[in-house]
Write a protein that binds this DNA or RNA. Sequence first.
DNA 1: CACCAGGTAGGAT
DNA 2: ATCCTACATGGT
Length: 260
Amino acid sequence: MVKIQNNHFSLNQIADSGQCFRWFKVSDNCYDIVAFDKVLRATQDKNIIYFDCSQEDFDHIWYFYFNLDIDYPQPDCYDMFLSAAYEYGSGIRILWQNLWETTVSFIISQRKSIPAIKTSIERLCRAYGNKIEGTKYYTFPKPYQLTTFDKDDCGLGYRLPYIKDLAQKVIKEAISPELVDALEYDEAKKLLLSVRGIGEKVANCILLFGLGHIKACPIDVWVQRIIDEEYNGLKPNWMNSPYAGYYQQLTFFYKRHLTK
DNA sequence: CACCAGGTAGGAT
DNA sequence: ATCCTACATGGT
């Protein structure tokens, strides 16, 4: 068991922030987090978080998954909407997730609601991933496990060929996560946009959640709504800051809450 | 039953 | 470059 203290960390807020699709609520303030072929049970009591894993796994995997080496800056107070979002969702963190899983997940995400995304991904994992020993969960399928599937038993619809093409491309051209990881922001984005099924928004999600580029700022229907309704149709300055992705996530979370 | 969902490709202006 | 539309399926 590993225990940390952090005033800017909320399991509930992160779970509901639309960046991770395989967090399973166990009880209040307790989740099973399925990632990197493992299951991490995390429990929170105020600003103390307990992780049911070895210190080695925490130091090598989960510390970076939660981006714990990053302190997010408090936004400037002149931006009322951003400040309100920060006050509301100060426990939000940007997760640094597995690149392949993030890529496939956000290709699936297009024109789907978050519950529908979760359902599709779970069906994909059950059908093509491996059972994680000693648990009821399944791994996210590797590229080679997605090269040959033809029948849409996961509700992917028109996205299925996108996934299959990408899996084959990754195998054939030996594109490894490490390879993409080594690219600078602009090159990585160019490579992502060359994939069928990845456009501007999904590319930015992958840069932000799968490659650790906190300046990437995905603009989806909600963020566009924020621009239109909160900023008179003009992009706010924070969208160009080095922490744009973090601020985007704060406001995305806040705006969705406001309209519920 | 409608309507919308963390959009994109491909084609027409 | 910018606008337009078809797109499969599921959740509410």
